[in-house]
């Protein structure tokens, strides 16, 4: 905690490096034959896991900042969100290239016919405008509508977890843990929002 107060400039590079860890570790595992018997499946799972984890971490920024008073968290939120998008891109690319090898016919059939792929792909599509509008210039240009647009991230998170839940065979533990975390984050937000609303309501009366 002391560190970031003294050297705030370090926070962003540190988070950046930390977010690259899964990728670097994955590449290292690939070169040292540690991805198991089915490397394509393993890469698919790892990139998907990290996309979802980083998405939940991104969503945790605001509640954590409020609860713990860590102002610096807000400064890495965009980076975390973009890394979630980055791993989602890798996840999708793994599916397109390694798993299906550009068999667009099969891919299209999958997207239309398989609910878990339909919803996973939708989650990705919805992430794209959020990534595109993540720059300062876009924030300024969109003004109020930026915030409205970025509410989509909750839909993406719900879709991402449904994607996970619908693809597992019998063991729902991990997807349910993710779902529980998302639910907790949403409840915290709802609670803060209610508080904010009630203070706004009571404010005119007291003044």
């Amino acid at each position: 905690m002391m560190m970031y107060r003294m050297k705030p400039a370090l926070i962003k590079p540190l988070v950046f490096i930390a977010c690259l860890f899964p990728l670097v570790f994955g590449i290292w595992a690939g070169f040292t034959d540690q991805l198991g018997a089915n490397p394509i499946e393993e890469i698919t799972h790892r990139t998907g896991d990290w996309a979802l984890r980083l998405l939940l971490i991104t969503l945790a920024v605001t509640p954590l900042r409020r609860m713990l008073g860590w102002g610096w968290l807000l400064r890495v939120r965009r980076m975390l969100g973009l890394f979630a998008f980055f791993y989602a891109c890798l996840h999708l690319l793994t599916y397109f290239v390694l798993d299906q090898f550009f068999d667009w016919d099969e891919i299209l059939k999958d997207i239309i016919k398989r609910p878990y792929i339909t919803i996973g792909f939708s989650a990705f599509v919805l992430l794209v405008p959020l990534a595109v509008t993540s720059t300062n210039a876009m924030m300024r240009r969109l003004g109020k509508r930026w915030g409205q647009l970025h509410q989509l991230v909750y839909v993406v998170a719900v879709f991402g977890i449904l994607h996970y839940l619908w693809l597992v065979k019998a063991d729902y533990l991990l997807p349910l843990i993710h779902a529980a975390i998302l639910l907790a984050l949403l409840l915290v937000r709802a609670w803060y929002q209610r508080q904010a609303l009630s203070t706004r309501r009571t404010a005119p009366q007291t003044s």
Partner: peptide
């Protein structure tokens, strides 16, 4: 119901 059975990945092979 959730995935196709028309192809398979033979462990150790790249193409299905």
């Amino acid at each position: 119901p959730r995935w196709s059975q028309s192809r398979e990945r033979r462990i150790g092979e790249f193409f299905k």
